[in-house]
Amino acid sequence: MSNDQRDFAQAKTNELYIIKDGWFKPEYQLTDGQFVYAKLSYRSNFKRDAVIELPQQIWTIKRKGWFNRTLFINKGEDEIIGTIIPETWKRDFNLEFENGFTATYLYKKLFSKSLTLTNDTLGDILHITQKAFSVKQPFTVTIDLVTKPSDIPALPLLIMVGLHVVLSRQRQAAAAH
């Protein structure tokens, strides 16, 4: 784990950016322009297993099986702490954590470039918006959550899981053409 990451509690803004570093094996970094709060990278060229790094912890996102669309969120390598379940006929993804926290990643409009994480009681938590024609800084993140309840997972983790969902959908769309 690198020393250039900072604890998200020290973030002073609710507007963040995701920058892409590298071309063939890219790493995505959640930053406010000065500090890095989280990183997302992939283990292989097939981009099946995602690795999310926060200053104190590493998470992995792995598929439940080769032909299963459900994803497991693991603390470290093997301790399952949550699942990402794609809706069958919609673009939504349901997020369920072992501690009982649930939320949904969804696109509110049909042709929207903004993915929203929403919860039944908290409302909209955050938005990940894709910026057109921006290679180095392809996404912006806006956090709507004013007060953070204790059962909600770390916001950088939720942001990077959402980014993984967006990147997976882009790869599927590219493969379909």
Score class of each variant (00 low, 15 high):
173 A>H: 06
15 E>Q: 03
67 F>D: 07
103 A>C: 14
89 W>P: 00
29 Q>R: 10
45 N>D: 05
124 D>G: 02
62 K>I: 15
62 K>M: 14
19 I>C: 10
67 F>C: 03
97 F>I: 15
136 K>I: 14
110 L>F: 13
14 N>T: 13
10 Q>Y: 08
56 Q>T: 08
168 S>I: 01
87 E>F: 07
78 D>V: 00
162 G>I: 02
98 E>I: 08
8 F>E: 08
28 Y>C: 11
65 G>H: 03
6 R>M: 13
143 I>W: 09
39 K>S: 09
97 F>M: 15
110 L>W: 11
76 G>S: 07
153 P>I: 11
96 E>F: 13
70 T>M: 11
136 K>G: 00
33 G>K: 13
72 F>S: 10
53 E>W: 01
74 N>C: 14
21 D>N: 10
22 G>T: 03
71 L>D: 05
159 I>Q: 02
177 H>Y: 00
27 E>L: 09
131 K>N: 04
150 S>T: 07
110 L>H: 07
157 L>S: 09
159 I>T: 07
115 L>T: 00
177 H>R: 00
107 Y>T: 04
79 E>Q: 11
41 S>G: 11
60 T>F: 03
152 I>Y: 12
58 I>S: 09
149 P>L: 12
10 Q>F: 07
15 E>D: 02
176 A>K: 11
45 N>Y: 00
55 P>M: 03
86 P>R: 07
74 N>G: 03
127 H>R: 12
108 K>S: 12
163 L>T: 02
109 K>Y: 08
35 F>P: 00
172 Q>R: 15
49 D>W: 06
60 T>H: 11
134 S>K: 08
18 I>L: 14
22 G>Q: 08
33 G>F: 10
34 Q>F: 02
68 N>E: 05
167 L>V: 01
86 P>K: 06
134 S>Y: 00
128 I>E: 01
50 A>H: 06
161 V>Y: 03
143 I>R: 10
87 E>R: 09
170 Q>N: 12
41 S>I: 04
91 R>N: 05
114 S>E: 13
98 E>S: 13
161 V>T: 06
32 D>Q: 08
20 K>Q: 06
171 R>S: 11
18 I>N: 13
25 K>E: 03
168 S>D: 13
7 D>N: 06
37 Y>W: 05
119 N>E: 12
2 S>F: 10
94 N>Y: 14
6 R>A: 12
152 I>Q: 14
93 F>Q: 08
93 F>A: 05
136 K>Y: 07
67 F>W: 09
105 Y>I: 00
70 T>C: 05
35 F>T: 03
54 L>H: 01
71 L>P: 03
148 K>C: 07
39 K>T: 09
27 E>R: 12
8 F>I: 02
78 D>N: 07
160 M>T: 01
11 A>M: 11
136 K>W: 12
103 A>R: 14
141 V>D: 02
39 K>Y: 04
118 T>R: 15
125 I>K: 10
166 V>I: 15
115 L>F: 05
91 R>W: 00
136 K>T: 08
38 A>V: 04
111 F>G: 03
169 R>F: 01
24 F>V: 12
24 F>K: 15
68 N>D: 11
163 L>I: 03
